[in-house]
Each structure stands twice: as C-alpha cells, then as structure tokens.
Amino acid sequence: MEEMERKKIKRTLEIDEIIKLYLEGSSTTEIAKLSNVSPRYIRMILSDYKIGKRSFGNWKRRYKLNEDYFKTWSKNMAYILGFFIADGFISNDLQTIGFAQKEKYILEQIRNELGSNQPIFQNKQTGVYMLNLNSKIMKKDLMEIDGNTWYYTK
C-alpha cells in the first residue's frame, strides 16, 4: 500500500539543460545525479534527440592532448614527426606513443605544441626524460603516416 502512495520522482533538469551539460563534457552519470534520474534515462534522452555518443572513457582523460595533431601537415608537425622517428616509440601493448630525450626543454616544447599538460618523467638510472602520451588516435595516425612500418616496444 505504501508503494502506491509513493510520489513519482520527477526529473529536475529540462531536456535542453541535460543536452547542454552532455555536450560540455559532463558524463551521463553526473547528469543523472543532477537530474534525479538514472544514467540509462539520460542515454535514452540523448538517443531520442540524436546526440552523438562520445567514445567510451573519453570524458575520463586526465591530461589534455590535441589527438588530431598529426592529421594536418605543418612545419612544426614535420619537425616533431622527424623527432619522433629519431627518438620516439609506439607501444605494442598500449595505446601509447612516447618521446625520449636527454634535454627536458625539447620535450617541454613538443608537449606544448601537442597541446598537452602530460608530466615529463626522468629515468633515474639513465637520466633520460620521457614524454608518454596515451592516445589511440595519435598512435593510429603515426602508424599510417609511415605505412605501418614502425618498430614496437613493450
């Protein structure tokens, strides 16, 4: 009997607000909490209004990165590509590309050009600095530039 008396819970955000939050980068779970509904309900609204879904985990990116950097040719892109060929690597097991260099300032310039705030680490034994970037898109682009002839590291 109590169940029948329970009030029906109402959505607390308007549909346009839900769509706006999603397009600004909020997750369906975050929006659901704000709206007092389930994440499934939010996904149904987005689907009904033909809002394209982001790739899984996209909103979880910890560090910024212009993943499309290697899609457009420029002088800077050509320089970084050459540097990558000389001192870079593509991980075989992960969606990671990386640069290794003894001069930290060079990696800082590359990081800035790629629009990233990824930390640069130093190997304590060798003194070499490493910039590792996690991006399936960037890995694929770099592999396609040279016809998939890159050597992998583990």
Rank of each mutant, 00 (worst) to 15 (best):
S47K: 15
L131I: 04
G57T: 03
W59I: 07
T126W: 06
S27L: 09
V128E: 13
L23H: 09
I120T: 03
R40F: 12
Y63A: 03
R11D: 04
E108T: 13
G52T: 08
K124A: 11
F89L: 07
R6W: 03
S38V: 02
K10W: 05
M44G: 00
K75R: 10
E103R: 13
I45G: 03
Q122M: 15
K60Y: 07
S35L: 06
K20Q: 14
I90N: 06
M143R: 13
K104P: 05
I110W: 09
A100H: 08
K53A: 14
I145C: 01
Y105V: 14
N112M: 10
K20P: 00
S135K: 05
Y69R: 01
I15A: 01
I85V: 13
F84K: 06
E67Q: 10
L21W: 10
S91T: 01
R40Y: 11
S116M: 09
E24M: 14
P119V: 04
L34I: 03
L21N: 12
I9K: 15
S35N: 05
W73H: 08
K75M: 05
G115H: 06
E67M: 01
G52H: 11
G25I: 12
T29N: 11
E113G: 00
N117I: 05
F121D: 06
N66P: 00
T126H: 04
N132M: 12
M44R: 15
N134W: 08
I9W: 03
M130N: 15
L34E: 10
R62Y: 02
A100T: 14
G82K: 06
Y22S: 10
M77V: 15
Y129G: 06
Y63E: 07
Y49D: 02
A100P: 00
N92Y: 13
A100N: 11
L142N: 02
N148A: 08
K140C: 01
M44S: 11
N76I: 08
F121W: 10
G52V: 08
T126A: 04
V37H: 03
K50R: 11
E103Q: 14
E24C: 07
E14H: 11
M130C: 05
K50F: 10
R6I: 08
D87F: 12
K8F: 10
K75N: 12
L23G: 08
I110F: 08
K7A: 09
K71G: 00
D146Q: 09
K60L: 14
R62S: 03
L23Y: 01
T96P: 00
E17R: 09
K139E: 01
E14R: 13
K140V: 02
N123Y: 08
S135V: 04
Y49S: 00
L34H: 04
K64R: 10
L81F: 15
Y41E: 09
I90Q: 05
I106V: 15
K140W: 07
